[in-house]
Design a protein around this nucleic acid. Structure first.
Length: 553
RNA sequence: UGACCCAUGGUGUAAUGGUAGCACAACAGAUUUUGGUUCUGUUUGUUAAGGUUCGAAUCCUUAUGGGUCAACCA
């Protein structure tokens, strides 16, 4: 395989820059605002930014864009750092836009001195009404032509807390008729008396995104500042400010954010789901957050692989969540320990098994012999899955039915002899006979069966709660539907099975273990589980290749 | 009725003027003590119309479709 993997458009740009000597190494940054938890879309950006400096010489900073103290909090800072590390990346410098507040203030003064910024006393509504529209030019503020001295004095007094919140702003003096709305004298600073998670009450004025992000990039000498497409119009202002300030020329490049079907990736919407109790928290296993995926049992490897496969481009997209599921199955298939767990038990009695019990050997992972074997107890009273038995089976039903034979995984072949019912007609238990010569690994019976079932020994089984998850929304793109997106939540996104029976070895399951419950799916111990109460989360189902007959849904 | 960004199978992404490829999904078959895994094969695509060229997914024009922009959010 000497075939070079094709480059995405950013790698092409960087290789060109490196080749022509514009840079000898690159610096990128991942710039979250600490006002929410990271989600799968951020994971894509993290893999991109950190991946680029893994592939090319250079490094990546983690920089918190903390210029709006109203919504930001250290809780988010901590979760973001944990998530980036869990994904497998380490930043060079941990920085905060708030580290630069003094310098940003000086930058603002510099702009004022150059006659490129002014203090405006218009109200928020007045500024909006003077802004014009995409098709109509705006109007100049009556405060636009103050002298430099006046602006300097006023801005200092803004900083010193002499004016009430919202009463004044510092604006760049560009062009109120500019075709780009962002160039119509954008607000640079606002007055806001809010406690900042890092600078406390030192400041009562805070810079806006446009006056913090690019300047922070410049201070850190970021070479390639990568963001999403909605910032394309900001680039003109980004470049204007850097040029007028005469500071290090970072450059902004944009890519299309990744969207995934059957979920939402908007911090605002995710926050709503949390606050309104539609999920149990940011780390609810149904959430597309990094912490949710982690609790659900996803591995960092599988998430990185997913990000690699979906790639980077500039067009709108809606990625099939099936690809994410494929990636996690692919990884878990290699590493997960196979275990037997019966979710909906049906009692099965082997009438001709007279030796009480015995231990049978079973592979821990057929994909990995080094995972070894274990012993599992077998006895005359077992549980199998309710859905593995049908009294009147359709054609091609390989499971148990009256008179039909199946193999019990790693044990014996059995034949169903009798169905014992309760007074209400429901099935109480199955009575079967086993074929003694068919023991797994020592089968001399010569019998071939199509189906193999998982099972647990009734006497030895341990109880477990199993949480089954399905997609959070019923529709591919909840944001695109009529009305509130929450109307499209999937009511069956969580199904809790309380009375599952697990094989005894699961009593010692650890939080880092990954399991495949045979014939069912991949599972992980929930973070809330204790040695006394086993709780498992379903990460993802096994692929189901069985095309059921039409009568059966 | 403005500006900007984007347009390749069902989905995501390659092809950088010269054979439209890869992955997922779907379907069919083989193997299988997990209806899993693995293996083999099949179906499906350049938004449209003009132009440039020996040759266009690629360059040009127009149209169409989608997205973004009028927060003291980022």
């Amino acid at each position: 395989m000497s075939e070079e993997k094709s480059l995405n458009f950013l790698e092409e740009i960087i290789e060109e820059h490196l080749k022509e000597g514009r840079y000898t190494s690159i610096v990128t940054r991942f710039p979250p605002e600490p006002n929410g938890y990271l989600h799968i879309g951020h994971a894509s950006s993290i893999c991109l930014n950190f991946g680029l400096t893994k592939k090319y010489p250079g490094y990546t900073n983690l920089r918190f864009d903390d210029t709006n103290p109203d919504t930001e909090d250290t809780e988010y800072v901590d979760s973001i750092k944990a998530d980036v590390r869990w994904l497998g990346f380490e930043w060079k410098h941990e920085r905060y836009a708030s580290d630069y507040f003094d310098q940003l203030f000086e930058f603002a003064l510099k702009l004022i001195d150059k006659g490129l910024a002014y203090v405006d006393e218009s109200s928020s509504e007045e500024i909006a009404s003077m802004k014009g529209s995409p098709t109509e030019p705006g109007r100049n503020s009556p405060f636009r032509d103050r002298t430099i001295d006046e602006n300097r004095d006023l801005f200092l007094r803004m900083k010193n807390g002499e004016f009430p919140d919202g009463s004044r702003t510092l604006r760049a003096k560009i062009d109120m008729a500019h075709i780009n709305m962002l160039m119509r004298d954008p607000i640079l600073y606002r007055i806001k008396r809010a406690h900042h998670h890092r600078t406390g009450d030192k400041w009562c004025i805070y810079p806006m995104y446009d006056f913090a992000h690019g300047q922070s990039d410049s201070i850190e000498e970021i070479t390639h500042s990568i963001c999403t497409m909605e910032f394309v119009p900001h680039r003109e202002l980004y470049d204007w400010l850097i040029e007028k300030l005469g500071i290090y020329p970072s450059h902004q490049y944009e890519f299309a954010r990744r969207n995934i079907n059957y979920t939402v990736t908007s911090k605002r919407k995710l926050l709503q789901l949390v606050n309104e109790g539609h999920v149990t928290g940011w780390d609810d296993p149904r959430m597309p957050t990094v912490s949710g995926l982690r609790r659900r049992g996803y591995t960092p490897e599988s998430i990185r692989e997913f990000c690699e496969r979906i790639g980077i481009a500039k067009r709108d997209n809606l990625v099939d969540v099936g690809l994410l599921e494929f990636c996690v199955r692919e990884h878990l298939n290699r590493i997960a320990l196979r275990r037997m767990v019966v979710l909906n038990p049906l009692k099965l009695v082997i009438t001709n098994y007279e030796q009480g019990e015995e231990m049978l050997t079973m592979d821990n992972n057929p994909e990995d012999v080094s995972a070894g074997n274990r012993e599992i107890p077998f006895s005359a009273e077992l549980y199998i899955e309710q859905e593995d038995f049908m009294e009147e089976p359709p054609k091609k039903y390989f499971r148990l039915a009256p008179g039909q034979m199946v193999r019990l995984k790693s044990a014996y072949i059995i034949r169903c002899e009798e169905v014992v019912k309760n007074p209400d007609g429901s099935i109480r238990e199955l009575r079967c006979v086993y074929i003694p010569e068919s023991r797994s690994g020592h089968d001399t019976s010569g019998i071939n069966v199509k189906g193999t079932l998982h099972w647990v020994s009734a006497r030895h089984a341990i109880k477990a709660e199993v949480r089954l998850y399905d997609r959070l929304f019923r529709v591919e793109d909840p944001t695109d539907e009529e009305g509130d997106f929450k109307e499209y939540l999937n009511p069956a996104s969580l199904v809790t099975v309380e009375g599952a029976f697990a094989e005894p070895s699961l009593a010692s399951a650890g939080h880092h273990d990954r399991f495949q419950f045979i014939r069912n799916g991949y599972f992980v111990l929930d973070s809330s589980a204790t040695p006394e109460t086993l709780i498992f989360n379903k990460t993802v189902s096994l692929k189901d290749g069985w095309t059921r007959p039409k009568t059966d849904k």
